[in-house]
Design a protein around this nucleic acid. Structure first.
Lengths: 152, 152
DNA sequence: TCAAGCTTGATGCATCTGCATCTATCGCCT
DNA sequence: AGGCGATAGATGCAGATGCATCAAGCTTGA
């Protein structure tokens, strides 16, 4: 019943490493994109989801479910993507409030160019550092930390 | 010689989990602090370093070395901390450019209150989810991903 | 000694985030 | 049908971040 409040040193260390390393790696991936004159990672996430969704596109609230973005964040991010011609907003037939977001050809192309850089970063930062076994080990351990414990 | 450019699915999965889980957990820790009416995590990091440094305090550039903050970020963060009376800036005897930052009593107290919440979050989010062995396993794996490969 | 260049820290500006709130539409329930 | 709460998405405002640059003080070397 008594909720244990104080984390052990080992727990603290795992936490600290998780926070520090993830930020470092993220930053390095961002830097690589910037150096290539490409948009930030957040754009990739959205373009990726939309590309997977295909011609049907996605509603903004579906993007929110699939990513970790807040509602207002998606709203403005989509505005920027639209301004850059990477996505288009279509009215939705049976819901006057909603819209469907679809990637444009330019959006697909941008995503492709981002992936060339981003994928290379991932390979350098993780693929080259851990064996396949270690990679699945860390995936499994991280999976246990998800909240809430999701499938996959 | 040929740099392998394309990450394997397993590598991508490890990357995706790392990014997603770390953000989720960070967010939950932030939320807990906010709910307790306490300052954000960034403040904790700085107060923590300063508390460890003791009476001697630290120079801003030393904080930059010890944390992942950018220079301008530290500069403004310290301004906010000073405005809240959590730290004091002292001139440095042998370097007219510099300053020494020292935690105030109020700063120590704030850190203590933050840790009560933050520590509990860490315990809930990591301590309760992984066994000690798993925790040291994930620490070790994350350690391999650091850049550059540092000691400890 | 003193000019050139480096280090320390601050700051103006643009962008991005977080929070709260707003508008418009929908679905339900009576 | 009509009204009410819920849902979809946008937005005003304040605070935070990133980038470039600045000012002040230090160090070095001819």
């Amino acid at each position: 019943m008594t909720e244990k409040a104080k984390p052990s040193p080992e727990t603290i260390k795992a936490w600290a490493r998780l926070m520090r390393v993830s930020r470092q790696l993220m930053e390095r991936a961002e830097d690589a994109l910037k150096e290539g004159g490409l948009p930030p990672l957040a754009w990739y996430d959205v373009l990726h989801e939309l590309a997977e969704a295909g011609e049907g596109g996605l509603r903004p609230f579906q993007l929110i479910e699939r990513t970790l973005f807040a509602q207002y964040n998606i709203s403005r991010l989509l505005a920027r993507l639209e301004a850059d011609g990477l996505v288009e907003k279509l009215p939705v037939a049976d819901d006057g409030r909603g819209q469907t977001i679809r990637v444009s050809a330019k959006g697909r192309e941008t995503r492709r160019r981002m992936w060339a850089i981003y994928g290379r970063s991932i390979e350098e930062l993780v693929g080259a550092k851990l064996s396949p076994d270690e990679q699945s080990m860390i995936s499994a351990l991280l999976g246990r930390l998800r909240h809430p414990p999701t499938a996959d």
